[in-house]
Measured scan of single mutants.
Amino acid sequence: GSSGLPPGWQSYLSPQGRRYYVNTTTNETTWERPSSS
């Protein structure tokens, strides 16, 4: 899909309704949208 996220990243919603991002390669999580640069 065209999520616009860098490879390996997925976006999720927290129980509070906030969006966060997870790097499935490194298990890093961040509130900031990852850049593909």
Rank of each mutant, 00 (worst) to 15 (best):
G1D: 14
G1I: 12
G1H: 13
G1L: 13
G1F: 07
G1V: 13
G1M: 11
G1A: 13
G1C: 15
G1T: 12
S2W: 04
S2I: 13
S2H: 12
S2Y: 05
S2G: 13
S2Q: 12
S2M: 12
S3A: 12
S3I: 13
S3L: 15
S3F: 14
S3Q: 14
S3Y: 13
S3N: 14
S3H: 14
S3T: 12
G4S: 10
G4L: 10
G4P: 13
G4M: 10
G4K: 10
G4R: 10
G4N: 10
G4H: 09
G4C: 15
G4V: 09
G4T: 11
G4W: 11
L5W: 04
L5S: 03
L5G: 02
L5N: 03
L5K: 02
L5A: 04
L5E: 15
L5I: 05
L5F: 03
P6L: 05
P6K: 03
P6G: 04
P6E: 04
P6S: 03
P7E: 10
P7F: 08
P7N: 08
P7Y: 07
P7Q: 07
P7D: 10
P7M: 07
P7A: 10
G8D: 07
G8W: 06
G8I: 03
G8L: 04
G8F: 07
G8R: 03
G8Y: 06
W9L: 01
W9E: 00
W9D: 01
W9V: 01
W9I: 01
W9K: 00
W9M: 00
W9Y: 02
W9S: 00
W9G: 00
Q10F: 11
Q10V: 15
Q10C: 15
Q10Y: 12
Q10N: 11
Q10D: 11
Q10K: 15
Q10W: 07
Q10I: 15
S11M: 15
S11F: 05
S11R: 04
S11I: 09
S11T: 11
S11Q: 11
S11H: 04
Y12M: 11
Y12I: 09
Y12H: 12
Y12W: 06
Y12G: 09
Y12D: 05
Y12Q: 08
Y12K: 12
Y12P: 01
Y12A: 10
Y12T: 05
L13Y: 08
L13W: 09
L13N: 05
L13R: 05
L13T: 08
L13G: 01
L13V: 12
L13Q: 06
L13K: 06
S14Q: 02
S14I: 01
S14L: 03
S14W: 01
S14R: 00
S14H: 04
S14E: 06
S14T: 15
S14N: 12
S14G: 09
S14V: 03
P15Q: 08
P15A: 09
P15L: 06
P15G: 06
P15F: 04
P15W: 04
P15T: 08
P15M: 06
P15Y: 05
P15S: 09
P15K: 09
Q16S: 15
Q16M: 09
Q16Y: 06
Q16H: 10
Q16T: 15
Q16P: 02
Q16D: 15
Q16L: 10
Q16G: 12
Q16F: 06
Q16A: 12
G17D: 02
G17Q: 03
G17P: 00
G17I: 00
G17W: 02
G17H: 02
G17L: 04
G17K: 03
R18W: 05
R18I: 15
R18F: 08
R18T: 12
R18E: 14
R18D: 13
R18G: 07
R19Q: 09
R19K: 09
R19F: 10
R19A: 08
R19G: 01
R19V: 15
R19Y: 11
R19W: 15
R19T: 12
Y20F: 09
Y20E: 01
Y20Q: 02
Y20A: 02
Y20R: 03
Y20I: 08
Y20G: 04
Y20M: 06
Y20N: 00
Y20V: 08
Y21R: 00
Y21Q: 00
Y21F: 07
Y21M: 00
Y21E: 00
Y21K: 00
Y21A: 00
Y21T: 00
Y21S: 00
V22P: 01
V22F: 09
V22M: 07
V22G: 01
V22W: 07
V22L: 08
V22D: 01
V22Q: 05
V22I: 11
V22Y: 11
N23L: 02
N23A: 01
N23E: 03
N23Q: 03
N23W: 03
N23G: 00
N23H: 06
T24S: 09
T24F: 08
T24W: 08
T24D: 07
T24K: 09
T24R: 05
T24Q: 10
T24I: 12
T24N: 08
T24V: 11
T25N: 10
T25I: 15
T25G: 07
T25M: 14
T25E: 13
T25V: 15
T25K: 11
T25R: 09
T25P: 01
T25W: 12
T26K: 03
T26Q: 02
T26H: 01
T26L: 05
T26E: 02
T26M: 03
T26F: 02
T26I: 03
T26S: 06
N27S: 09
N27V: 02
N27Y: 08
N27E: 06
N27T: 05
N27A: 08
N27F: 10
N27P: 03
N27R: 09
N27D: 07
N27M: 13
E28K: 05
E28Y: 05
E28M: 05
E28L: 05
E28I: 05
E28V: 06
E28A: 05
T29S: 10
T29V: 15
T29N: 06
T29K: 13
T29R: 14
T29Q: 10
T29P: 04
T29F: 15
T30I: 09
T30R: 11
T30D: 03
T30F: 11
T30S: 13
T30N: 04
T30V: 11
T30H: 06
T30M: 09
T30L: 09
T30E: 03
T30G: 03
W31H: 07
W31K: 04
W31V: 06
W31F: 13
W31M: 07
W31S: 06
W31R: 04
W31I: 06
W31Y: 11
W31N: 06
W31T: 08
E32P: 02
E32H: 08
E32A: 05
E32I: 12
E32R: 07
E32T: 08
E32K: 10
E32N: 07
E32V: 11
R33H: 14
R33Q: 09
R33S: 10
R33W: 11
R33T: 08
R33I: 11
R33V: 11
R33N: 13
R33E: 08
R33F: 13
R33G: 04
P34M: 02
P34G: 01
P34A: 01
P34Q: 01
P34N: 01
P34V: 02
S35V: 14
S35F: 10
S35I: 13
S35H: 11
S35T: 15
S35Q: 12
S35Y: 10
S35E: 14
S35K: 10
S35N: 13
S36T: 12
S36G: 14
S36I: 13
S36W: 15
S36D: 14
S36V: 12
S36M: 14
S37V: 14
S37R: 08
S37G: 12
S37W: 10
S37Q: 13
S37I: 13
S37Y: 08
S37H: 11
S37K: 11
S37D: 14
